[in-house]
Design a protein around this nucleic acid. Structure first.
Lengths: 218, 218
DNA sequence: GCCTGTGAATCCATTCACAGCT
DNA sequence: AGCTGTGAATGGATTCACAGGC
């Protein structure tokens, strides 16, 4: 058994979250036990990878048998700290922002939006379907502190993203999830996760052209 | 100079897209030349990484000087094939789907939504702000063929995602961008890119708890 | 002197292959 | 026999360090 204090590769953390998806389905369908091979197939990875990823945090399986689904899922949730409630706030209530605050999956996993802001004062006061009213960014500091916000989500246009990131970190937010297409700067104490949806499309475009180059088009 | 036929690491492709963001800004602000170091800082990577990534595709810089912004941006766009129009379709017109079809950044980069579908027939016929009307999934095969769709975007609930992926690949779509939280299966000839927004949040949660563990909370 | 382009060195992650337990 | 847990081997990607050209 290995303590989790040893360095864990970043990809391992991402995969643990991936593993939990089919595990939820297996639990619901009443499957009691799963092997690393089966789980690997469901997630599109190598079986040894599954075992190694889990081994960073303990011994969750039974040799000759496999992993108990319920127990494994609970273990992963503990590791990823999905077994508690996290408070989020979001800045930038365009289409994407609205889609995120109303996302049921987030709520189900314990990610609660506690406040929504927008730089455009004309939007301030508008009530969202989720119940929140849009607040002005001038209130970020006050509300982030009062509501104990852990994670700030940025869905503003590119030109506002850095200013908003500064406001959020200044208010004490310890991590950011940024959807604006630029690298926001933040103090080292603040974790920043980037999601650039355009990058994914450009990836596909690149591969599509190579494919066309390799094989004749149909 | 190295031909681009040699194997290019997947992360390199992702980063080329990242590099293009600040390059667009630099071009607009009239900066004629940029060094690998400056670009690296703007993108949060190592300068040698920038040079090596570019070297996979040619020699774009001038020793002692740097890279001409306009020329480099054009080169990257050619490599990523962002210099042409791509036709997309999207299936699943919930909040996220609506946010994506109306995203101006995609349109600006040449990604055009040619059709929008939903599994729920009650939504069929509804006209979206972007001008498209929602079509039934029964028309996927016909419309994908007629409109020459290159990329299929899946924003359905988890339970519909695999069925939709099958319909899309069967209709001849050569790549998929899947937002449903499960690994969709597709023939090897079809590229699949996954975006699970929950994974990003779970990542932040993991790091936040380790941080708390390391340092006392405030 | 300055900055690119690139082999060599390092670092990191994945996969193999088998020992160990049930 | 079956499947986990893990050292060893492999395979990639990042970074270093310097040669090459402006």
């Amino acid at each position: 058994m290995m303590s989790e204090s040893g360095k864990v590769p970043a990809p391992t953390i991402e995969r643990l979250a991936i593993y939990s998806r089919p595990l939820e389905d297996l639990l619901e369908s009443g499957t009691p036990v799963v092997s690393s091979e089966r789980l690997a197939i469901l997630c599109g990875v190598n079986p040894a990878q599954v075992r190694k990823d889990l081994a960073y945090f303990g011994e969750f399986g039974v040799r000759g048998l496999g992993y108990e689904v319920r127990e494994l899922l609970r273990a992963i949730r503990t590791i990823l700290a999905t077994d508690r409630v996290w408070h989020l706030c979001i800045v930038g209530m365009g289409n994407l922002g609205r889609a995120l605050v109303e996302n049921e999956n987030f709520k189900k996993r314990g990610y609660l939006f506690a406040a929504a802001f927008d730089v455009d004062n004309r939007k301030v006061g508008e009530r969202l379907r989720c119940g929140l009213a849009i607040e002005p960014i001038a209130k970020i500091k006050e509300l982030v502190g009062r509501l104990n916000v852990d994670i700030g989500v940025i869905t503003t246009p590119q030109e506002d993203a850095q200013r908003v990131a500064d406001l959020l970190t200044d208010a004490g937010v310890k991590s950011l999830l940024n959807f604006a297409p630029l690298q926001v700067r933040a103090p080292a104490s603040c974790f920043v996760e980037h999601v650039d949806l355009g990058v994914k499309l450009e990836n596909l475009a690149y591969h599509l052209t190579r494919l066309r180059g390799a094989k004749p088009h149909k």
